[in-house]
Design a binder for these strands. Structure first.
Lengths: 104, 104
DNA sequence: ACGACAGATAAGCATGTACTTATGTGATTC
DNA sequence: GAATCACATAAGTACATGCTTATCTGTCGT
């Protein structure tokens, strides 16, 4: 089950921090490390989890590996969330505004 | 951090199943149990986790406790997701359709 | 070809988590 | 008011998870 890996991946605060940083722009694993207090193997392991969850994708560039946000994972969360749209109250307005933004 | 509790709560497949069932309509803890193979204490513990994450809320009714989906938690996920709207590709179309649904 | 570098993988360990059984707490029924 | 019911809590246990240190793989510069 794909949702399982996604939510499991995001359940860890360090992993969310990595994802958030990656969302500011693609970068390699070393660049990701500074600012976050984490060892090289730990980072590598976290990236592997995020990648297998479809939240992040990699691209080899010589001896560097460039990581970037994979929209696939985000889309799956949105799909999951959409199943419960019946429970959305007034916040729908906010979402509509957001949608308009995306549309331009 | 609230996001932490939410994602942690949803990381467990049993808990997602409970939430999903609850999304079909509020019900008490015993009613939630049938169909899902789970002991009474386990259910109680899962509900406590979902509740403290803001995904579910309870209402005492005599000796029963009625549970229902709490929109608060869902809204927080949506907010989290919105931070990454820059990464949404063509799926925006799908979301727009969804939005139209919600709007009617 | 060799050393340095970016990153992945392996193995071990400490802590977290989801379950179990047992028991506690209120509300209901007789 | 005693038994029963719905649910919560406690304590223990097996397994998952995130870290560590050590090592491996592959690429680059010289």
């Amino acid at each position: 089950m794909v949702e399982n890996e996604i939510f499991r991946a995001l359940a860890d605060p360090t992993r969310r921090a990595i994802f958030e940083k990656l969302a500011t722009g693609g970068m390699n694993a070393s660049a990701l490390r500074d600012g976050i207090d984490i060892s090289q193997p730990a980072m590598s392991q976290h990236l592997a989890v995020l990648r297998s969850a479809g939240l992040v994708r990699e691209e080899r560039q010589g001896r560097f590996v460039n990581y970037e946000v994979d929209p696939e994972g985000l889309a799956l969360i949105a799909q999951w969330l959409a199943k419960y749209r019946a429970y959305w109250p007034a916040r729908i307005e906010a979402l509509k505004v957001l949608l308009k933004d995306m549309d331009q």
